[in-house]
């Protein structure tokens, strides 16, 4: 996926200014940056949830806007932060919606197999007949990820997947993301606030500041004292743990 000179304005105020970068296939890319830097807006535009005001997004050599929504749904999945369902829906029924782009509401035997796999993958077997609104935040988040897995797309975009999760669940979530990439060969793009999760689990990091890309590169290139202090205006210390640069700030 290639992004060229992407722009977005809200009420005349530029929030995304001329952003260009490329998303490498089969890797985990984390978007980081302070609040209001434009990372979630960029995520929204590359997933067609938000209309862009300028620039090009090419997905598989074709303009994103020219893709049929249904075809795109088989290639690219997005999970945003706020998901509340008013319906009485069980985990299994929710996960089954992941097959909607393929079979509509008439599921095939293959769909059922994918649904079962996704539920097992997210270790949700024991909850599969529970209603979504009766689950804890962590379980619900996992159910949504299972739906995305059932959707079986090459690209998975997650907007702050660790938001509102405790340390245990967010760590598991990040490990899960790593497995999605390593075992299932998916390209995962994340918006993250926790720098250490980004540093430890991703391959590339794209750091935003004021609607522009401050730095895009491998984890080692971006997670440095100089780059981070510049972006966040806070003093940083970098430590190496398990071969990965981790940040300390206070």
């Amino acid at each position: 996926m290639t992004i060229e000179r992407l722009k977005k304005k809200y009420d005349g105020k530029s929030v995304v200014k001329d952003i260009s970068f490329e998303i490498p296939k089969g890797k985990i890319i984390s978007l980081i940056g302070p609040n209001g830097a434009g990372k979630s807006t960029v995520m929204g535009m590359i997933s067609r949830l938000i209309a862009k005001d300028g620039g090009n997004i090419k997905f598989e050599d074709k303009d994103l806007a020219k893709w049929k929504s249904k075809e795109l749904a088989k290639r690219l999945a997005i999970l945003t932060q706020h998901n509340n369902v008013q319906m009485k829906l069980t985990v299994r029924e929710l996960v089954a919606f992941g097959r909607f782009p393929y079979s509509g509401s008439h599921l095939t035997a293959e769909d059922l197999e994918m649904i079962d796999k996704a539920i097992e993958y997210m270790e949700l077997k024991e909850y599969e007949n529970r209603f979504i609104d009766e689950l804890s935040g962590g379980q619900r988040q996992r159910a949504y990820i299972a739906m995305v897995i059932a959707q079986d797309t090459e690209y998975v975009l997650l907007d702050e997947p660790t938001n509102n999760l405790d340390i245990y669940h967010s760590t598991n979530m990040m490990k899960m993301v790593r497995r999605l990439c390593d075992e299932l060969g998916k390209t995962v793009v994340l918006v993250l606030h926790e720098l250490n999760y980004a540093a430890f689990h991703s391959d590339y990091i794209c750091a935003f500041k004021d609607g522009k890309i401050a730095k895009f590169g491998t984890v080692e290139e971006v997670i440095t004292k100089e780059v981070l202090s510049e972006i966040y205006n806070v003093e940083f210390e970098i430590m190496k743990i398990a071969g990965k640069p981790l940040t300390i700030y206070y």
């Binding site: 929504s69 749904a73 997005i78």
Partner: peptide, 20 residues
């Protein structure tokens, strides 16, 4: 009406699943 089942998942989910 069948799309409506998906639409109740919310706007973002509906678009994600390919609903116009």
């Amino acid at each position: 009406i069948a799309l409506l089942d998906v639409i109740t998942l919310g706007k973002h989910q509906a678009i994600n699943l390919g609903v116009d």
